[in-house]
């Protein structure tokens, strides 16, 4: 359980990090390190150089800009968890983050690290896909961006260009009567989810769903958006039966993962259940209190 030898660099800014990364294709960027350092201990990862971006202060922002909440790559999960701006403008994140690992791993773990790591069960990846977040990066002195729905293509696989460093993410702000819901099932609290589900709803003045987003995580190679259910449910009052029928139909042909912990059938069945609960929570929250601004 000891990492193989490597060189360590602590660049002062993101362009220096990119240059170091470009110079050595076996180098890896480390942010919170809550996955990478464990992988290195098990020697499942053997980077020749570790590029530590933790101290790049310019990457730890959480702010709103126009219609987006912008979060820097090295903003800590524990900071985002308690951030008033996130609670107000990206409430799905505030709901999901307490489910990531444990307090001691959220204390080091970063928002960008989790997004870049692309674990199929990662709560932040599910939120990014559900809310159509946009991933931002730097490479070669230039900035680029990729919509989250095009960023994830497999388990731990993203379309981040080689030599690029993820710099941040932006989540669109929903206004109006907005509510969110998030549920997951795991063997022990805060372990990796077997299935997770996220929902965000905006209700119109008639009480019907004006805008709706539903995602399911940990059930497939990367989190899944339930587009067909969203289309079917928008404009409805989101009553239990309509919701369940739509979710069941949306998940019917999805090839869910199967492993030691949970069968494919179990995952599909539980995905329907958790998504229904998340939607019910979102609807109730939207009814209960009109979302500020």
């Amino acid at each position: 359980m000891k990492a193989a030898p490597f060189e360590y660099s602590r660049p002062a800014d993101i362009d220096e990090a990119c240059a170091l990364l470009a110079a050595d294709e076996s180098a890896r960027v480390v942010a919170g390190g809550q996955t990478l350092v464990a992988m290195m201990a098990m020697r499942l990862a053997r980077p020749t150089r570790l590029i530590d971006i933790n101290r790049i202060a310019a990457l730890s922002y959480i702010r709103t800009e126009g219609d987006d909440v912008k979060i820097g790559a090295t903003a800590r999960q524990c900071v985002a968890e308690r951030d008033a701006l996130i609670a107000k403008s990206a409430p799905l994140l505030a709901r999901a983050i307490p489910n990531i690992g444990h307090a001691a791993t959220r204390a080091r773990g970063t928002v960008g690290g989790s997004l870049a790591n692309a674990d199929p069960a990662a709560e932040l990846v599910l939120c990014a896909i559900t809310l159509d977040a946009v991933i931002e990066y730097r490479a070669d002195g230039e900035s680029g961006e990729i919509p989250a729905r095009e960023f994830y293509i497999g388990p731990m696989i993203t379309t981040l260009p080689a030599g690029a460093v993820l710099s941040g993410v932006r989540f669109p702000i929903w206004r109006g009567k907005v509510g969110v819901g998030f549920h997951e099932v795991n063997a022990r609290r805060s372990d990796f989810a077997f299935v997770s589900a996220a929902a965000q709803v905006e209700l119109g003045d008639d009480g019907k769903a004006k805008r709706i987003a539903i995602g399911v995580g940990a059930a497939t190679d990367f989190p899944l958006r339930l587009d067909s259910a969203e289309a079917q449910l928008s404009g409805t009052a989101l009553d239990e039966k309509t919701v369940r029928d739509a979710l069941r139909a949306a998940l019917a042909d999805v090839e869910t993962l199967e492993d030691l912990h949970a069968s494919a059938d179990y995952r599909r069945r539980v995905a329907v259940d958790l998504a229904a609960r998340a939607l019910a929570d979102a609807r109730n929250a939207a009814q209960g209190k009109p979302h500020a601004h």
Binding site: G33, C78, A104, R108
Partner: peptide
């Protein structure tokens, strides 16, 4: 802040 000391390198 409570952290896991096995999940960071001393140089960090």
């Amino acid at each position: 802040v409570a952290v896991r000391s096995c999940l960071m390198f001393a140089v960090q």
